[in-house]
Amino acid sequence: MAKAVGIPERQASRPGVESGRSLFGLIKHLTVVELNWFAWAHADTGTELWDDAAPVADGRRCATR
């Protein structure tokens, strides 16, 4: 995420590759993958895994619990 500091929100929201993934989308995806990995592999919490394709409420850029 340090590499994304200072990038304007408009630019980070715009798809940058043919798949349609934006920088915000990539950061959200990687965050969800890491959270799910630790919940599943290390914490063994039995909690429901997050979905990186789920819509984000209230205009926020990342999901909160």
Rank of each mutant, 00 (worst) to 15 (best):
R65Q: 11
E34R: 12
A43Y: 12
L49M: 12
G20C: 09
E48C: 06
A63G: 11
A53P: 04
H29P: 03
R14W: 07
E9Y: 00
L26F: 03
H42G: 06
S13W: 01
S13Q: 06
A53E: 15
V17I: 08
R65T: 11
P8S: 14
L30P: 04
M1I: 00
I27H: 04
R61G: 13
V33E: 08
L35P: 01
A12V: 00
E48M: 10
E9F: 00
H42R: 07
S13F: 02
S22Y: 00
P8L: 09
L35Y: 01
A43L: 13
R10N: 12
H29E: 15
R65V: 13
M1L: 00
T45C: 10
F38V: 11
A39I: 05
W40N: 14
D52P: 05
I27A: 09
D58K: 06
I27L: 10
T31P: 00
Q11D: 15
W37E: 15
L30Q: 09
V32R: 00
W37A: 08
I27S: 02
K28T: 00
G20S: 07
L30F: 08
S13I: 09
I7L: 04
K3G: 06
L35V: 07
D58T: 04
L35T: 05
V17R: 06
A39S: 08
R14D: 07
G6W: 05
A63F: 07
Q11I: 14
A53S: 12
E9I: 02
T64K: 08
I27N: 02
P55E: 09
T47Y: 14
K3D: 12
N36Q: 08
T64R: 06
A53W: 14
D44C: 07
E48Q: 09
T45R: 12
H42E: 13
L49C: 04
W37G: 09
R61F: 15
A41C: 12
A43D: 09
L30I: 08
V5Q: 10
I7D: 02
L26V: 03
H42D: 10
A53V: 10
R61C: 11
W50V: 13
G16A: 09
L35A: 12
V5R: 08
V5H: 05
P15W: 01
L30V: 11
I7K: 03
V5E: 13
W40M: 13
R10D: 14
A57C: 08
